[in-house]
Amino acid sequence: MTRARSSRAVLGARTSRRTSASTALVAAACSLAAAGCTASYSDTTIDGVSHGEPSSSVTRSQIQVPVGAVVTAHIAPVNSDGKPMVGEVRSHDTTILEIDPAAGDKVYALLGLREGQTEVDLVADGVIVQTIHAVVTSQ
């Protein structure tokens, strides 16, 4: 009796250890799978650029704004599932180019404060995903 109970106990212990290991493996696998399935940054869409200033442009390769001018644009990062991410647009030198939220979701106003060049960071979910060269030109 005692031996048998002991054997069962040992067997139970082994079974428990196996179960824990399996559970851990499954959990890890699930975690890995979940991580693999999380959509990552894919792209930033820039559209709805106002064209009040003919010599201005806002693209993924360059931003150009005349001094004294305002250009608005809808700038939105999307993930690999095509879903919107939390975005932010930051100017490295706000004495040259100021970027402020404007009326509308993910609409930004780019203000040319003085002539010069700077860089603009596109941020998605808190991570800088792209840096764009920006020029504030003379009139």
């Binding site: 009040g52 608005t72 402020d100 939220p101 404007a102 009326a103 106003a109």
Partner: peptide, 10 residues
């Protein structure tokens, strides 16, 4: 309140 640009004019 939050400094949002709501309009502008030249």
């Amino acid at each position: 309140t939050d400094g949002r640009v709501i309009d502008f004019t030249p």
